[in-house]
Write a protein that binds this DNA or RNA. Sequence first.
DNA 1: AACTTAATAT
DNA 2: TATATTAAGT
Length: 345
Amino acid sequence: MGEEVKISEFEFNSAEDEEATEKANTTVFDNEDDVDQRVLEWEIGLPDCDDLTPLSQSLIPPEFASAFSISPEPCRKALDVNRASYDTLSSIRSSGAHFSTYNDNKNNNNNDICSFDDPMVVEPEGGGSGSGSGSEPKKLRKTGVDIAEEADSAVRTTENSEDPSAMTLKRQRLVWTPQLHKRFVDVVAHLGIKNAVPKTIMRLMNVEGLTRENVASHLQKYRIYLKRMQGLSNQGPSASDQMFASTPVPRSLPESRSGGGGNGLAGGSRKDDGHVGMPIPMPSLVPLAMPMYGHMAMHLGGYHNRQNGYEANSYGMQPRYWPCGNKSGSVVSLPNHMPPNHKLS
DNA sequence: AACTTAATAT
DNA sequence: TATATTAAGT
């Protein structure tokens, strides 16, 4: 159906060919409109109703069902799906079990585009901070607009006064899974460190529900890590930063970022999003062809990779980095289905 | 308004 | 401990 939409347009070329890489870098992220345009094209390429198995249709052929003594599935409707998601959520919560859907088919390095899934979120612990069902307290004095808009636009997309799953995931603590972190690093690398600012990173990561604050916080830590690594140029990363250590580190650091506030890059030049001043030369930075994420939204329920209509979603890989091992607070995979960024502002 | 950093809170 | 939030500066 959408096969006319050429994926190659979105792709970054292999770092072997630096010219091509540079060209790609300059062409792919000309400006925000360009990104939006590509998202639009991506959306056009989404399967339409004809491509999707209707909820009313059983996934298991009747012969199979009877051969394996599988009781016939009841007819599902959208509401059932939502409720199932909600139930899953609840049971995970009450059991306190960790639940993760990693999909890292052992090729951790080959940055294949299929290996993303599931930004996870942790329920805030303790009853303290205005949790419960109606938690909307502090917000007021904040810049409010940004955060609320970003987070909410993702949620509200499917929320129509019902959809319990959307209600359940208010503001929860984001878990930076290796996959999510990798996407982060990829984006930072491609932006070049100069341009890698929270908002831009957030947009290019294209992860629904991810806020600028999420990114800023992570970026802050990431920079500290990079700085440390630069200082100790020779030795490997310490055991404490497994997460960061698991990803290639861009060589160049922001020039003379010697403390103090931001460099002058802040407000003024937000147009030149993706323009990387220098081509990214190091294969280690972006080892292979790196399709950027414009055509693939990651959202809180897993992300859809639309080549072949195959949705990558495998379960069972352990979180090996940043094991988020604390018992307090369950890790959940958010169940609601959201259309990929409809509105990239 | 967005960014950075440090400090602090959860 | 990892992440969020706040504060104060650019």
